[in-house]
């Protein structure tokens, strides 16, 4: 287990290097949200999910939806490092000819199971995928990462109700609870808190973890997979900008591009080479 976790930490470090590099080179993007989700995405792509980079459309693959689509630099880095496309493509993020759109596009980027970006839709789409699995005889799991601010959207709770009705045990939602949304701290912007009792009230199997602790992430996903009669949510406490100390908890990094100096600083912290 320790070696497994050490490897995941190393992958996550590379993902973070890629995120900061990509956003610096592209001159655009959301570093804070990408970095907070990095460990969750790493765990899914480098340990949990059944998938094949050589057969990205394989019918029985596990599905993944980055419902908080603005964190896509994280997803693009994971896909590239897992072999879906060359990491050389990462700096093309958001440029005209690139297959790496500003938000995930299932028809432009290999390995992306669902278009996303407008917030709140991932749980519904994930439910559709789980129901499709039943009808087509495939027993894959569907993982959805949402933001915390994102679940203020009403459709999330529409989906939460329906997923419970359909006993969608193969739907696993991870809430990247970094506590800060675009306009400021979640508790100041909205009436969302407390999060977990809401999902409990909707009949979901609920867990709460440290979203930067791979041991906890893997254990929670195992438990979620074992719960077959209802959908699962894992509320993962995370830090916006995690891994780059001068970005951590500072919401100016919600959408901000590191300067050359900040980029160098981030690379020296993460142990990456400036490219």
């Amino acid at each position: 287990m320790q070696e497994r976790i050490r490897q995941l930490e190393e992958h996550a470090r590379q993902i973070r290097i890629d995120i900061v590099t990509m956003i610096h080179k592209a001159g655009d993007g959301h570093p804070g949200a990408s970095l907070s989700a990095a460990d969750l995405v790493t765990a899914l792509y480098f340990d949990v999910m059944n998938m094949d980079p050589n057969a990205p459309k394989k019918a029985d693959r596990d599905r993944f939806i980055l419902s908080k689509g603005h964190a896509c630099p994280c997803l693009y880095a994971a896909l590239a490092r897992r072999g879906y496309f060359s990491p050389d493509k990462l700096p093309s993020l958001r440029s005209l000819e690139s297959h790496l759109q500003g938000h995930p596009d299932m028809n432009k980027t290999p390995g992306i199971d669902s278009t996303s970006g407008s917030l709140g839709n991932g749980v519904s789409i994930g439910l559709g995928m789980v129901l499709a699995g039943r009808l087509t005889g495939h027993d894959y799991f569907t993982y959805v990462i949402t933001g915390d601010g994102e679940i203020e959207e009403g459709i999330v709770w529409e989906a939460a109700m329906a997923a419970c009705k359909y006993k969608a045990g193969r739907l696993i939602v991870l809430v990247d609870n970094n506590g800060i949304q675009s306009g400021g701290p979640v508790q100041e912007v909205s009436g969302l808190y407390p999060i977990l009792p809401k999902w409990e009230a909707f009949g979901w199997h609920c867990q709460e973890i440290d979203g930067h602790d791979f041991g906890q992430i893997l254990a929670a996903i195992e438990k979620a997979k074992a719960c077959t009669d209802r959908p699962s949510v894992i509320v993962a406490h995370t830090i916006k900008g995690k891994g780059v100390p001068f970005m951590e908890g500072d919401n100016s990094w919600h959408k901000r591009v590191p300067t050359a100096q900040e980029y160098q600083q981030a690379m020296s912290i993460l142990g990456g080479a400036c490219s």
Binding site: A59, L127, G128, A132, G133
Partner: peptide
């Protein structure tokens, strides 16, 4: 829940 109906249908369609 019409929004959910359409998004859920998108999920179904994405799986064939």
């Amino acid at each position: 829940a019409e929004q959910n109906a359409v998004a859920c249908a998108a999920g179904l369609a994405s799986c064939g």
